[in-house]
Write a protein that binds this DNA or RNA. Structure first.
Length: 718
DNA sequence: GCGATCAGCT
DNA sequence: CACAGCTGATCGC
């Protein structure tokens, strides 16, 4: 039996079964990865990899196909291949030029999703889509060794075909074309799933996969449209409709005895999402001027926010809930139960063993039902939000995913370090996450946050978010780290540094000279005069010289510590200066590829460990001699000496000798502690505060009590 | 068994 | 101690 035959005989399961049951023996027989419920996107891709949309459709006859066939091919092909989930800036630029883009430049999520399709296509083949797109747009050959393959593999027509493809996909005169956005169709049933988010698309595709039967004559993909799919489609059409769903809001309004404002809410298209962040000013602006009803609504919203802290079990009925939208409706109905006078369902409060209430009943608007029902939702609602996570004069939170609440829909993430994104999971449904492109890529790659929840903030460009001017600058911390300047309407500018290290470039930022800072929220990690460590350059030089000095033994393995991201500069400089490749694991390379490092840096990396005697390793593995001894024993046949470098500012702590590095040795293991820091030294902190002269300072680290906060502020301003 | 949270550790 | 992030215990589903 061929793979396709095998696939086609996959038994029809109800969608709920595919979501909630253990893998079927058929899937196991397919040698797909074991699929627990629900299947992941990767699993979907693995399954979809086995089929093409139509035996007649190939890359070489795209030009003669209808637009729909063409797009179906593209999307199916994207699913069929392994997910790289990445798109290079250069390809992005080309696509931006050549594909119709969303007119709102601040909101690239929809076009991103579609452009990712091309990135998928690009990923596997060495004669890449990227090289073809680039070559067809610039008139040059593809890059980096692709040319030959490209020329050999595809004749001169190929770029023309891609032009045709792009034109077909962006033809505004055809159905499904929506404001310049590409249409995403299910590769199996051809249904337009553009408006569904990634998870819903995945669910939809899985439903199709589960339902695929023996090809039936007319069906272009050999996929019989099953009954359950009709249900999904029907429900989906509700969610994909351009009309705003105000029904739950109206229901809620009536429960407050304020039904007479129904028309106003309908006219203003206030759906459940909007309701949650409605302010009193908003109510006035939409004409609810009378004090009584206004206060009633404000009170009810406030009760609702408190209600989020309480917990209650969600009633579920698997058979009735198959899509986001149905999930949404179910959840929405229950949300109204929080309000006085509308209780239908019994509220059950429960606490976990640590005495924390569980927000089991999520108000998720986008998490699939299984996520809402099965996953524990972080209990952000009960914790007090620290001062340094809130931006005065704005409705924004920064690095506050530990304190998730429905009263906020704008969540900024300064950089991708665990202590800043803690609490963020792929089921995040509290609005938008604002961050740099690098951070967005990492959040998508490592946590699985879909692109439609991520808003990329361009560096050095002022943009308006919820009426607040926001500008972000490079923080000189880890790659993708930003400092954020908020300029609210009250003119009291707030600068949030996230984690940062003051640099010359930062001192040259115009906006920081021209905009008086009212409140400075500052990274006070090393806010103590004892931390007066050297510049990074000096430490890098020290490490290079140490490696040279220890290299007399050719059987020496050098280990350089790093975080998931961070400290890259150290090992890249070592490689560059010593003209030696450094070894990184494949996983580490995937992360490094998100960082947009220049090719001259990337060329020093290798994933073949035998190619290098300088290895990059997680910092924690170098923290103790015990660990290092384990590593040493693994390499005993190749290396007789291990020299490890632990780069951290803590090296410079109390009572420690002030130098660019300290050397420790136990037998054949040498460990250097070097004060390579990506945070400001105390001196730099003071310089930065002097440079900005802010009216208020809010320390963001070691600020657990007023006393320590005051002490730090005194140190910084003295 | 999976995923999330937390304490403890480096 | 922190940094940043791992391990292992525990919990709910």
């Amino acid at each position: 039996m061929s793979e396709d035959d095998d696939f086609q005989t996959t038994p029809c399961l109800p969608l709920t079964a595919s979501l909630n049951q253990k893998p079927t023996s058929r899937r196991k027989h397919n040698s797909s990865p074991a699929i627990s419920s629900p299947p992941t996107f990767t699993q979907t891709i693995h399954s979809a990899k086995k089929r093409r949309p139509s035996p007649d459709v190939t890359e070489n006859n795209l030009a003669i196909l209808s637009r729909k066939q063409c797009k179906t091919f593209v999307h199916a092909e994207a699913f069929r291949r392994t997910d790289p989930d990445l798109i290079s800036p250069k390809l992005m630029d080309t696509l931006n030029e050549r594909l119709p883009s969303n007119s709102d430049t601040a909101s690239c999520n929809f076009t991103w999703a579609d452009k990712k399709v091309y990135a998928y296509l690009d990923a596997v083949d060495s004669y890449s889509m990227e090289s073809r797109l680039l070559s067809s747009s610039t008139g040059e050959g593809g890059e980096g060794g692709c040319d030959g393959l490209f020329d050999n593999e595809v004749d001169g027509e190929s770029s023309t075909q891609l032009d045709v493809l792009l034109r077909l996909c962006s033809d505004p005169d055809t159905d499904n074309f929506d404001h310049g956005c590409l249409v995403v169709e299910c590769p199996l049933c051809g249904l337009d799933i553009s408006d569904l988010n990634d998870e819903s698309r995945q669910l939809h595709t899985n439903a199709c996969l589960d339902k695929c039967d023996t090809p039936t004559g007319n069906s272009p993909h050999g996929c019989r449209r099953p009954q359950i799919l009709e249900q999904v489609t029907e429900k989906s059409s509700v969610s994909t409709s351009k009309q705003v769903d105000v029904a739950p809001v109206i229901e809620w309004l009536h429960s407050l005895g304020l039904g007479k404002y129904e028309d106003t809410f309908v006219k203003e298209e206030i759906d459940w999402d909007t309701l949650q962040w409605l302010t009193e000013e908003d109510l006035i602006s939409i004409g609810i001027n009378a004090l009584g009803p206004r206060r009633k609504i404000v009170r009810a919203l406030s009760e609702f926010r408190k209600g989020v802290d309480q917990s209650s079990k969600m009633e579920t009925d698997d058979s009735k809930h198959t899509t986001d939208r149905t999930n949404n409706l179910a959840v929405n109905r229950l949300i109204t139960d929080y309000f006085a006078g509308s209780s239908i369902h019994e509220k059950k409060s429960f606490r976990n063993s640590r005495g924390q209430s569980m927000m089991e009943k999520s108000q998720s608007n986008s998490a699939p039902l299984w996520a809402v029902r099965k996953k524990r939702v972080p209990d952000g609602g009960t914790k007090t939000i620290p001062l340094w996570c809130c931006i005065p004069g704005t409705p924004f939170r920064v690095d506050a995913f530990r304190y998730l609440r429905r009263d906020c829909s704008h969540w900024f993430l300064t950089h991708f370090h665990a202590d800043h994104y803690q609490g963020l999971t792929k089921y995040f449904s509290y609005g938008k996450i604002y961050c740099s492109l690098i951070t967005a890529k990492l959040v998508n790659l490592k946590i699985g946050i879909p692109w439609d929840k991520l808003q990329v903030l361009p560096l050095n460009q002022k943009i308006s978010i919820a009426g607040v001017d926001v500008t972000v600058f490079d923080a000189n911390h880890c790659p993708g780290a930003i400092i954020i300047l908020f300029e609210p309407l009250n003119s009291k500018a707030v600068l949030h540094t996230g984690d940062f290290r003051f640099s010359e470039e930062m001192a040259n930022i115009d906006a920081l000279h021209t905009c008086p800072i009212h409140t400075l929220i500052i990274d006070t990690t090393y806010c103590d005069p004892q931390y007066d460590f050297p510049k990074q350059e000096a430490v890098i030089q020290f490490v290079i010289e140490a490696i040279q000095a220890e290299s007399f033994n050719p059987r020496t393995l050098f280990l350089i510590g790093c975080y998931t991201i961070g400290k890259e500069r150290l090992f890249l400089e070592v490689a560059r200066v010593l003209h030696t490749k450094v070894y990184v694991t494949a996983a580490k390379l995937r992360v490094l590829k998100c960082l947009g490092l220049p090719e001259e840096d990337m060329q020093w990396l290798t994933t073949r460990e035998q190619e290098s005697h300088i290895h990059v390793a997680p910092l924690w593995t170098l923290a103790s001699f015990k660990r290092l001894k384990q590593i040493s024993s693994q390499y005993s046949d190749r290396f007789s000496l291990i020299v490890a470098f632990s780069p951290t500012g803590w090296t410079f702590g109390k009572g420690k000798k002030k130098s660019t590095g300290r050397r420790w040795q136990q037998g054949t293991i040498i460990r250097y502690e070097v004060p390579y820091s990506e945070h400001c030294s105390f001196t730099e902190l003071k310089e930065f505060v002097k440079f900005l002269s802010p009216l208020n300072i809010i320390p963001s680290v070691n600020n657990h009590e007023q006393k320590s906060s005051n002490a730090m502020i005194a140190l910084l301003t003295s």
